[in-house]
Amino acid sequence: MTDVIIKLEGITRDYMMGAEQVRALRGVDLEIRRNEYVAIMGPSGSGKSTIMNMLGCLDTPSAGRYWLNGHEVSRMKDDDLARIRNREIGFVFQTFNLLPRASALANVELPLVYAGISGRDRRRRAETALHRVGLGERMHHKPNELSGGQRQRVAIARALVNEPSILLADEPTGNLDSTTSEEIMRVFGALHAQGQTVVLVTHEPEIATHAHRVVVLRDGRVDSDRATPPRATGVAA
């Protein structure tokens, strides 16, 4: 397990906020290997969101280089970035970000639509992904007919359906109560156990303890990077 799936090298990101230049990232070096379970933490303003957008190929660095699964994405144009997001990254958001009018199944099919996979194959893969997160029975429900935990499971199924290199979760339990949070974290644990690389961005230490490695950012730099002991209660499907 030495193959590197994410490699950041001297990443900086500056942007203008009004007349003021904000230096959100000031030189980040980071390597994440296949099947790691990493939590990225840090207080607000530490550059946590910026690095999340960077890792998710929604943003490109001002300077530095970023390789994702062998592709150098730091110099890519919009269309190529869209393709990388589609093939290599599975997003899970705090607010679920499901399309409200589409059924759970249709939401999960969405990345496959943009991958150009058609008809029956797409449906079969979306159904498999929903079964994996334990929502096989509710795939025809609309998001507003599902509980918060169920919605997040749909979002996880959508993130998984293209078999991405990394599962990138941004505060995935931020809108959930503690019982449901545990449930969702067990899903992540199970996926990691099946070989999925998981990157979790969170400010909650309790959530971060589920990961096996915690990277703390402060003022746009990596402040600490250490392995955490596996939790006793952890992995269960």
Binding site: D78, D79, Y114
Partner: peptide, 14 residues
């Protein structure tokens, strides 16, 4: 919705 679609891999032309 447009943001979600883009995050999931929709290109500008899609």
């Amino acid at each position: 919705e447009i943001g979600i679609r883009k995050a999931l891999g929709a290109r500008g032309r899609d």
